[in-house]
Amino acid sequence: MNALAGVIFHFIGGFASGSFYVPYKKVKGWSWESMWILGGLFSWIIVPPIAAWLTIPNFADIISNTDSSILGYTFLFGILWGIGGLTYGLGVRYLGVSLGSSVILGLSMVFGSLMPAVYYFFNKAEGKHGIDYFFTDKAGICVMIGLLVCVIGIYLCGKAGVLKEKSLGTLSSEAKSDYNFGLGIVVAIVSGVLSACFNFGIESGKPMADVANNLWKAANPNQGEFLYQNNVTYIVILWGGFTTNFLWCLYLLIKNHSFSDYTKSSAPLAKNFLLCAIAGTTWYLQFFFYGMGESRLGNGASSWILHMAFIILISNAWGIALKEWKGVSKPTYTAIIAGIATIIISICIVGFAKTLE
């Protein structure tokens, strides 16, 4: 039951992450930086402490009593992840929701799942798997197979993107708005590698989650692991993410004179503010449910792969729903559908791996 609950929680988190950019696409009359930083205030500053306060009333004490080196590394990985998140928005802008998310999150999935295992191979820690786990243990081998299958699905989604670019001349204006494969793929690669730092941040801040977990277990004996233990860690990681995004968006707001967007009479201000708030809150919910899934599956490769795979799956589904692939050739559409189907298979494989442990 723990494995099934973990998969369900990761699906909900993946749905939130794969859906968060949809409200942004409905914002009218604002520059990218205006809507991105407003949504970010909800994602990184407003919602995380509210969620932590509701689930871990003494979260501030846990943070204040944590060793400065732990806070420093967690914050640093948050900064690096913030660069990945910043370029994620640009990647989705230039490649579309489906292709952009597939490339970025696919790279993040590979790096985020394997790099901690490489670290723990050389620095042994109780409850952590080294990279040898994926080649010597039945469950680990199954996880690796699932990862490879997901990479194939990502390749098919990427292939669909290349085919889409070749057929731009026949696409509708809605489908090719802002589409720039060359620029988008470079941004996506940078974003994909750095986005994996969020998982590294969770690893670095694990002592804070452990304190929250132990306090809860002491008050609630024999009830398993604390579902919301990571909510305290997220606050520090997201401080780092906010720092990166705030500085960049502030630069763009000054450079492009975009501050006037917030008072622009020609823009639907109330609607735009609401959409950004919804987008930012939805973005945070991915972490909230990731933490719940991780409490059931563990913060290993399985959790990260499932989370990323579900995000890719939902992002591509939204891409089809938003008609980003409208008017493309039959081979292009077949490639994106095949990619989605392959990713679904990989999710099933990784979920099955947990039953072998």
Rank of each mutant, 00 (worst) to 15 (best):
A3L: 03
G14Y: 09
K25N: 11
S31M: 15
W32P: 09
L38V: 13
V47K: 11
V47I: 15
W53M: 12
I63P: 05
N65H: 14
D67E: 14
T74G: 13
L76E: 11
L76Y: 11
W81H: 09
G82P: 08
G84T: 07
T87E: 01
Y88R: 06
V92P: 00
V97S: 10
S98E: 10
S101P: 05
S108W: 11
V110M: 14
G112Y: 06
M115P: 10
A125R: 10
E126T: 05
D132G: 00
I141K: 00
I145Y: 01
G146T: 05
L168N: 07
S172K: 07
G182A: 02
V186P: 03
S195K: 03
A196N: 09
M208L: 02
D210G: 02
A212K: 09
L215Y: 11
F226M: 03
I235N: 12
V236L: 15
N245A: 13
F246E: 10
C249T: 07
C249Y: 03
L250V: 01
Y251L: 11
N256C: 13
H257P: 07
K264S: 12
P268T: 01
A279H: 13
W283L: 14
Y290W: 06
N299P: 00
H307W: 03
I311C: 09
S315D: 15
W325D: 07
S329H: 10
A335W: 05
A335I: 07
C348S: 11
G351F: 02
